[in-house]
C-alpha cells in the first residue's frame, strides 16, 4: 500500500479554506434565518386559528419526514419555477438549509416555551400586558435561554448538513473537495482533509457551547 500523499495541499489549500468559509457562512445564515422562521412556526402552532395551526404542523411534519437531499432539490428546481425568478445558487442552498433547520428549531422552541412556568404568563397578563406583549417580552426571552444549548447543536448540525448542497453546485467545503479530488486524481486524501476541517469546526463550536452554557448556568445560581 502506498503512503498517503498530501503534497497536493501546497497548491490546493485555498480550495479548502474557501470551501470552509462558504460552509460556515451557510451554517450561520441558516441557523439565524431558521430560528426566525422557527419562532414564527411555533407561534403559528399556538395560534387560535385552526388553519394556521394546521399549516405549521404540516410544514414541520413534511420537513422532518423527508430527506434533506430531497428538500435541496425541491427548492433548487421548484422555487425558481414557483416564483418565476432566477435565484442564485447560493441563495437557493441557504433557503433549503433554512427551511430544513426551521422545522427542527420550531420543535425545540416549542419545548422551550413550554418549559417557562405558566405563572410567568399569568403574572404578565395580570399586569395588563396583552398576549402578544407577554409572549415577546416575558415568555420568548426565557424560552430562548432554555433552548440556547439546543440551538448550538442545531448550528453544529447545520455545518454538517450543508455538505448536501454541494449537489446543486454551491462551492462549499464538500464541493471544493470533490473538485480537488477530480483535479488531483487522488481518491482518499482530499476527503480526509475535508473531514478533518469539518471536525475542527464542530469541535471548536462544541467547546464554545460548553463555555457559554457554563456561563449561563453560573448566572442562574449566584
Amino acid at each position: 500500500m502506498e503512503f498517503l500523499n498530501f503534497s497536493f495541499l501546497g497548491s490546493y489549500y485555498s480550495f479548502f479554506l474557501q470551501g470552509a468559509y462558504v460552509t460556515v457562512l451557510l451554517a450561520i445564515i441558516s441557523v439565524i434565518a431558521g430560528t426566525i422562521l422557527g419562532v414564527l412556526l411555533t407561534l403559528m402552532r399556538r395560534s387560535k386559528i385552526k388553519v394556521v395551526r394546521w399549516i405549521s404542523i404540516a410544514y414541520v411534519e413534511f420537513i422532518r419526514g423527508t430527506p434533506l437531499l430531497a428538500q435541496v432539490y425541491l427548492v433548487y428546481v421548484g422555487l425558481p419555477m414557483l416564483l418565476q425568478l432566477n435565484i442564485p445558487d447560493f441563495t437557493t442552498g441557504a433557503i433549503a438549509l433554512t427551511i430544513h433547520a426551521s422545522a427542527y428549531i420550531s420543535e425545540t422552541m416549542r419545548s422551550g416555551i413550554e418549559a417557562v412556568p405558566y405563572g410567568q404568563s399569568e403574572a404578565a397578563r395580570s399586569l395588563g400586558m396583552n398576549s402578544r406583549r407577554t409572549m415577546l417580552d416575558i415568555i420568548l426571552p426565557q424560552a430562548f435561554k432554555n433552548i440556547l444549548p439546543a440551538l448550538g447543536n442545531q448550528f453544529i448540525g447545520n455545518i454538517k448538513d450543508s455538505s448536501l448542497v454541494s449537489v446543486i453546485g454551491i462551492a462549499e467545503l464538500m464541493y471544493e473537495t470533490t473538485t480537488v479530488r477530480g483535479t488531483t486524481a487522488l481518491g482518499l486524501e482530499p476527503i480526509i482533509v475535508c473531514s478533518l476541517i469539518y471536525l475542527v469546526l464542530t469541535l471548536t463550536l462544541t467547546r464554545l457551547l460548553t463555555f457559554v452554557e457554563r456561563r449561563l448556568k453560573s448566572s442562574d445560581h449566584r
Binding site: 403574572a123 395580570s126 400586558m129
Partner: peptide, 20 residues
C-alpha cells in the same frame, strides 16, 4: 380584559417575578 387587569393588582403564591 387587559384594561380591567391593569386596575387589579395580583400577587401570587409563587411570586412569579420575571427571572430575566
Amino acid at each position: 380584559i387587559d384594561q380591567v387587569r391593569e386596575k387589579m393588582g395580583m400577587v401570587f403564591q409563587q411570586f412569579n417575578l420575571f427571572p430575566h
